[in-house]
């Protein structure tokens, strides 16, 4: 008797379990397959450029000599964007989550989210037509007063279409990503820990430093990495804003180039080996992004013991 009632099962529930686990597995496999497919495509298409004799590649000195200046350019633009956007984004997120009155907070959050909805070509047009023109006097000032620093070496670009302008435009574009993710995480800080800090006699800022920021650190790292992903891969804004050229240390002269913009500007007219070269550049960008994400994972896992997840 007992055995029969135990072996009988409600089939509908079981079927639901199977369908769900199957769907989840399929989705997971699909992601891996797509990623692998993209990687395979990039590698296969890039091989001709990687094995071609150096004089056939653009510039005549081989693929490596072609790619490294634009890798550096890409990293410079992304780093500028993050250096500007991260503190602002965390500040705005903290203001929304812990300081602003409730009515203002939701309005401000909405406006920030709206920034993410603007197409990147609009940012590019704004950067090229407005920001570059308005900011060039500041570049002159930097060249005159801070010119002894290699990064502010003059003469400043008259048009303002420099890597620094591109970085500033990128920072505005990654701001909403970092802000909204950080805000969500700040809001999830357990009330228990905030009250623990306050009950010890912490001011609001001390409470944030003691309870909120440590709790949110892995989330902030992830948010910054997502922002970095966008900054590294952004194409249109950089292509429109930057007056590209050879690699230069100065951020306020025209010059430098990013991988994504290089591909976008050259791909339409490319053929033969040139296509392979650009795809190989894409492969390099892919590897950089992968590396950045792995470093981010490593940073997060290093603090796992103290994350509060246990």
């Amino acid at each position: 008797m007992t055995t029969t009632s135990l072996t009988q099962s409600r089939c509908a529930g079981r079927a639901g379990d199977k369908v769900f686990s199957g769907a989840a597995l399929a989705a997971g496999c699909l992601i891996l397959a797509v990623l692998f497919g993209v990687a395979l495509f990039l590698v296969v298409q890039a091989i001709p450029a990687l094995v071609a004799s150096p004089d056939k590649i653009q510039g005549g000195e081989g693929f490596f000599a072609y790619i490294w200046p634009i890798v550096i350019g890409t990293l410079i633009a992304a780093v500028i964007a993050l250096v500007i956007a991260t503190p602002v984004a965390i500040g705005v997120a903290l203001f929304i989550s812990h300081f602003a009155p409730r009515g203002l907070a939701s309005g401000l959050g909405y406006v920030i989210d709206l920034l993410a909805a603007i197409p990147s070509v609009v940012y590019g047009a704004w950067g090229a037509a407005f920001l570059a023109r308005e900011i060039s006097p500041a570049y002159d000032w930097l060249a005159n007063n801070m010119g002894w620093l290699p990064i502010f070496q003059g003469p400043a670009s008259a048009t303002g279409k420099t890597i620094l302008t591109a970085g500033i435009v990128l920072s505005v574009m990654v701001l909403p990503i970092i802000t909204s993710l950080s805000r969500e995480i700040f809001l999830q800080t357990p009330k228990l820990h905030e009250e623990a800090a306050l009950a010890l006699g912490a001011t609001r800022w001390e409470m944030i430093r003691m309870a909120v920021i440590p709790f949110a650190r892995p989330g902030i790292v992830s948010a910054v990495m997502l922002g970095l992903g966008r900054a590294l891969g952004e194409t249109m804004a950089v292509a429109l804003v930057l007056s590209s050229g050879a690699l230069t240390a100065s951020l306020i002269q025209s010059g430098n180039q990013t991988i994504a913009a290089e591909i976008a500007l050259n791909f339409p007219e490319a053929s033969g080996l040139k296509v392979s070269t650009l795809i190989a550049a894409g492969l390099v960008l892919f590897i950089i992004t992968l590396g950045v994400n792995m470093i981010a994972r490593w940073i997060i896992s290093r603090h796992k013991e103290f994350s509060g997840a246990n």
Partner: peptide, 26 residues
């Protein structure tokens, strides 16, 4: 001072740092 219903040591701090948390304020 206050002790709460659910134990709430700071999860991101060591035992030692938890004890010192209040003293290190200000």
């Amino acid at each position: 001072g206050m002790v709460f219903q659910r134990p709430n040591p700071f999860p991101t701090m060591s035992i030692r740092d938890n004890v010192l948390a209040g003293v290190r304020l200000n």
